[in-house]
C-alpha cells in the first residue's frame, strides 16, 4: 500500500474509516447503556457483556460456519447477562454500580475461560458492504468497507429515539427511570419494565462484541475490547441519554481512536501514545465545554443510581 501518493489525505481517510469501524462497538454498547440507564439503572457490566458477545459470536461462527448465527448467539448471550444483572439490581438494597462491577469481572472471566480454545482457529467473518468500489484508491475502498452491524446501529439509534417518544414501552421505560413511584401509581410494573430494558440493552452490547470478533479487528483475543465497554458508559452521559447523540459521540470517539494509527501510517510516529490518548482528552474537553453548573444534566433519568 502506497501511503505517500495520497499524503495527508491518508490521515483523514484513516480517521474517517476508524470512526465507522472503531465507533461501531461504542455505538452498540452506548445504545444498550442508554436504554439501561433510561430504566433508571446503570450497567457497568457491559464491558463484560461485550467480551462475552465477542467470544460467543466467534465461537458459534466457527462451530456453525455462519457468522450471522454468531451475531444471534452474541445477542442471546448478552441478553442472558443482562437478565442476570436486572435480577440482581431488582433485589432490595443491591447497588447497581457494585453489581455492575461484579458482572464486568464475571463476564470477562467467563469469556476468557470459555474462549480459550477459540484463540487459534479462524472463524468465518461477517461480510462487509463494499461501498467504495467506485474509487481507484485502495485506501478509500478499504475505508468504505462498512460493517453491517454499523448500519444496524444507525437504524437502532433512530429507532430508539422514536421509541422513547412514541411507543408504550418507551414511555414506560422513561417513567420507570425517572420516577418509579409515579410509575407504580400508574400501575406500571417497575420490575418487569426494567428487566426488559436491561436485557435488551445488554443484548445490543453483545452484538457490539460480535462486531469486534467477526469484523474489526476480526479475531478473538482477550485484549479485544480494551475498556471500550466502560468508555461507552461515559459516552452515554456525554450524549445526554439521547440515542442519536450516542451515534455522533460514537463516531467521534471511534475517529479519535484512529488518530494515532493513522498518523503512524503516514510516517508520523512522534507522540504515538499521546495521540492514542486523544479520545480521553476529547471526552474531558467536551465535558468541560458542555457542562454547566447552573443546570442539572438535562435528560438524566431522575431515578438513576437511586436504590429501589
Amino acid at each position: 500500500m502506497n501511503t505517500e501518493s495520497i499524503g495527508w489525505w491518508g490521515v483523514v481517510i484513516g480517521i474517517l474509516a476508524g470512526a465507522v469501524r472503531g465507533g461501531t462497538p461504542f455505538l452498540l454498547v452506548s445504545l444498550g447503556e442508554c436504554l439501561t440507564e433510561k430504566c433508571g439503572k446503570i450497567n457497568l457490566g457491559l464491558e463484560g457483556t461485550l467480551l462475552v458477545g465477542a467470544m460467543s459470536a466467534y465461537a458459534i461462527s466457527y462451530k456453525t460456519g455462519n457468522p450471522w448465527i454468531g451475531v444471534a448467539a452474541a445477542a442471546g448471550a448478552g441478553a442472558v447477562m443482562g437478565a442476570l444483572h436486572a435480577f440482581l439490581v431488582s433485589r432490595p438494597k443491591v447497588n447497581d454500580i457494585a453489581a455492575g462491577i461484579a458482572m464486568l469481572i464475571f463476564g470477562s472471566g467467563l469469556a476468557f475461560y470459555l474462549g480459550k480454545p477459540f484463540i487459534q482457529p479462524s472463524a468465518p467473518q461477517l461480510p462487509g458492504l463494499e461501498l467504495g468500489g467506485w474509487s481507484a484508491m485502495p485506501q478509500v475502498a478499504a475505508a468504505l468497507k462498512i460493517s453491517p452491524i454499523f448500519l444496524l446501529g444507525i437504524a437502532l439509534a433512530f429507532l430508539l429515539q422514536w421509541a422513547f417518544r412514541s411507543t408504550r414501552f418507551g414511555l414506560r421505560v422513561r417513567a420507570v427511570g425517572d420516577s418509579p413511584a409515579a410509575a407504580r401509581a400508574l400501575g406500571i410494573s417497575v420490575g418487569r419494565t426494567r428487566l426488559l430494558g436491561i436485557t435488551l440493552g445488554s443484548a445490543l452490547s453483545g452484538i457490539g462484541g460480535a462486531h469486534l470478533s467477526l469484523f474489526y479487528p476480526g479475531a478473538w483475543t482477550e485484549a479485544i475490547s480494551s475498556g471500550q465497554g466502560l468508555m461507552a458508559v461515559a459516552l452515554v452521559i456525554f450524549a445526554r441519554w439521547n440515542p442519536v447523540h450516542c451515534l455522533y459521540a460514537s463516531l467521534l470517539f471511534g475517529g479519535a481512536q484512529a488518530i494515532g494509527p493513522s498518523l503512524q501510517a503516514v510516517g508520523v510516529s512522534t507522540g504515538y501514545y499521546l495521540w492514542n490518548a486523544s479520545p480521553y482528552v476529547l471526552t474531558l474537553a467536551v465535558m468541560i465545554a458542555t457542562c454547566s453548573t447552573r443546570r442539572t444534566l438535562a435528560g438524566a433519568p431522575g431515578a438513576l443510581g437511586v436504590p429501589g
Partner: peptide, 27 residues
C-alpha cells in the same frame, strides 16, 4: 404526593396514564 414523571411533558404524562395505551402511540 405528585405522580407525574418529571422528565415528561404534560401531554406525555396524560397519555402515559392511560392503561389501554397502544403499543405505538399515534401522536
Amino acid at each position: 404526593h405528585f405522580t407525574l414523571v418529571p422528565a415528561m411533558t404534560v401531554a406525555e404524562n396524560l397519555v402515559l396514564s392511560r392503561p389501554d395505551l397502544p403499543a405505538t402511540i399515534p401522536w
